[in-house]
Amino acid sequence: MASVARLVDSRVLIPLRLLGLTALAFVAVGAFLLLFGRNPIEAYGVIFKGAFGSGYGLSEVVVRAIPLMLCAVATAIPARMGLLNVGGEGQLHGGAMAATWGALTLGALPRGALLPGLVILGLLGGAAAAFVPAFLRWAAGVNETISTLLLNYVIVLLVEYMVRGPWKDPMSYNWPFTPEFPESARLSFYWGTRIHAGLWFALVAITLFYLALRRTRWGYEIRVIGDNPDAAARAGIPLGRYVLLTMCVGGALAGLAGMAEVCAIQSRLRPGISTGFGYTGFLVSWLALHHPLGIVVMALLLGVLSVGGDMVQISLGLPYATVNIIMALIFFVVLGGRFRKSRSG
């Protein structure tokens, strides 16, 4: 009986409580909007209609959810062993830069060879960005939260430098961006929308994460470390190697998100390719309790908010920050909601 109760607790009650607490965050933001003389019902109406009112809105939710899913997995994999990777933003830009280098220098290759190459470059760029904090953690015990946060600033500044310096489009009249990528470096779009092949990357990454976590020794050992690092160390699990592995695999996936943004949505590198996808992806992972399926759901939910944020900006003149406040409050209530760390994969 106890086990049935526990099953009900984790399968039904946790999602229910999550939902209830999320509603609480919306009420709080509603009160905040009222305080500033704005109509919260109207604002929520615009967010809802913006995301669900049209096929275009719905497709844009998926477009936003793609980098969010990848960046969330980038957070979730290290989080399963107790590491806090807040470097999704930097790793995304690392992947975007590596892919940009490929698109600008290997553009003569046929599409069938170039695109897989760019995928690999995106993965490598993100992994390289994550290797630095992983190495610092492994070699000198440097807290990875601080190092990933600091590196975000560095990598975004590096992008700024590249698009205004070595990679600047000579025809751009001083706009800071690279030349447009050749056709052969572009990911396909589907269904007449901006939904692009990055969707498959994200879904494959989440599926592999799910399977690796449950069906492989890696996943098992990562979960053991997450539950009890001391016991794991005593059992001979090489903690240091897993620090490097989980951080770099996570970073690689965030890098892939960056590659998809430049190769599909932007078709060039420019500052602002990410509207905080790395940070929002971090929230997605925490709201999903680092659970693969939860990540899909939460990425879509925050995708709705992100599209809605654009809409309240356009039609109500409210700042985009409105939805950032909602997201932060949801994070707070979930954190404070005393969810036990889910133990069973």
């Binding site: 905040f32 940070y279 920050a321 950032n324 997201m327 932060a328």
Partner: peptide, 11 residues
């Protein structure tokens, strides 16, 4: 940090 960033950008 996220909350303060959002609230201060708004206000």
């Amino acid at each position: 940090m996220f909350l303060c960033l959002g609230v201060t950008s708004f206000v």
